[in-house]
Design a protein around this nucleic acid. Structure first.
Lengths: 219, 219
DNA sequence: AGAAGTATGTTGAATTTTCAACACAATGAG
DNA sequence: CTCATTGTGTTGAAAATTCAACATACTTCT
């Protein structure tokens, strides 16, 4: 557990909680650590949404596959970020998404009911945890709005350009890497992969961007 | 203020808070009540996201208009429901959506900073309010996921059918009203209005549904 | 080095959406 | 009642997406 202290302290769930109390609290909450290989399922759609997940190393993807087999990538979480906390806090009986490891990853899982409902030891940090969860959920909503702003666009080109401009803004540079391969980017933007590839080539020919693999430069 | 007590008690923000305390709290929070005519703007995009809104009568729409003039309807809130709380809780400097009255409406506005940061009177209900906000934000995320599941579909027909099936499930009947006119439904599903009309006619001809104005029957 | 598998780009045909324009019904104001 | 406005359905042409199939790189494994 101590091995991951540094990353846990950066986690929004534990904001304003000092090291000593953090360790005690994790025991009290029954936190456990698990490891997953690349592409392995951490939480499968349809299961009860019990756990708040924290990425300790690696990264995870939140996705859904619809009736027709189309995959949507809904979000990505990297080290220090939470996943599944929205469904766990809403106490839904079945989680509507699947969460997989994007690469070999270590995650911490905390039973959400231990966070929401005061434990018998009354360890006294629930109020801060609930405040932190509230802030986290609010910023998740913002992120979701940003994604919706991109996918609401009508054409592949507009979706792609809004996404790239957003990434450029986020990294503060015209030159940046994206965390997706082509198929994943297509699934994130909710468009056809081959059409996306064609559109990238077109933008390249028009001198609007340069790209190589998952590195992009906006001109 | 007393006039709206009944609806305020149903509001998720005030869950677990009794009448007497509710009234005192509203004063302490500096809650104010405003009225808006149909189609009037309650909160305009770009303004600071200061307020938690509560619909007292009527209903409001959360929407955004993009660069090209396409409107997206993101959500609807009816009496007793909250709006804008996600942005206020995230303390973003500019709200990325516009919120308008869908019909003549009365709303209560509460400065979110009064809720998040303990007031000098220490009226003692902040913990409950923050818990309630956390639960509300979690269920907003669920609702947002449901909308995303609909708009992620690739064709107008699939979007429309998922929407209608969802409404049927929600009302528990194959016969139901929707809260949108055609243009609004198109903006909610993020498709072209005329294409949507054509698709509804087609489904009607195929015997899959009956519809008249905003009333639908799935067969 | 060679083989197998994965990722990416390309193409053309079929499908679907968007867009603009118009007809007609319903609504509301004077 | 009439006129003007708004909402809805229809159509055809243009544009864009999807889909399937394939060529070519790039990886990974032995």
């Amino acid at each position: 557990m101590k091995k991951y202290l540094k990353i846990l302290q950066q986690c929004p769930l534990f904001s304003q909680i000092d090291t000593e109390n953090l360790l005690r609290m994790l025991t009290c909450l029954g936190a456990r650590i698990e490891m997953f290989d690349k592409k392995y399922t951490i939480i499968a759609e349809g299961n009860p949404a019990k756990y708040i997940g924290i990425v300790l190393t690696g990264s995870v993807q939140v996705m859904r596959i619809d009736y027709y087999g189309n995959r949507s990538i809904l979000a990505e979480a990297e080290a220090g970020e939470l996943f599944g906390e929205d469904f766990a806090c809403a106490e839904v009986s079945a989680i509507p998404v699947t969460i997989i490891a994007n690469e070999p990853s270590t995650v911490m899982l905390i039973d959400c009911s231990h966070v929401l409902h005061t434990c018998t030891n009354n360890c006294g940090f629930h109020q801060q945890l609930i405040f932190n969860l509230m802030k986290d959920l609010a910023s998740k909503t913002i992120a979701f709005h940003q994604k919706a702003e991109i996918t609401a666009k009508r054409t592949t080109r507009e979706k792609l350009m809004s996404y790239l401009l957003f990434q450029a803004k986020k990294t503060g540079s015209h030159s940046f890497d994206i965390p997706f391969d082509r198929q994943e980017l297509a699934d994130y933007l909710e468009v056809d992969r081959s059409g996306l590839s064609a559109e990238i080539s077109k933008l390249r020919r028009e001198g609007i961007l340069k790209s190589e693999k998952n590195h992009f430069v906006l001109l």
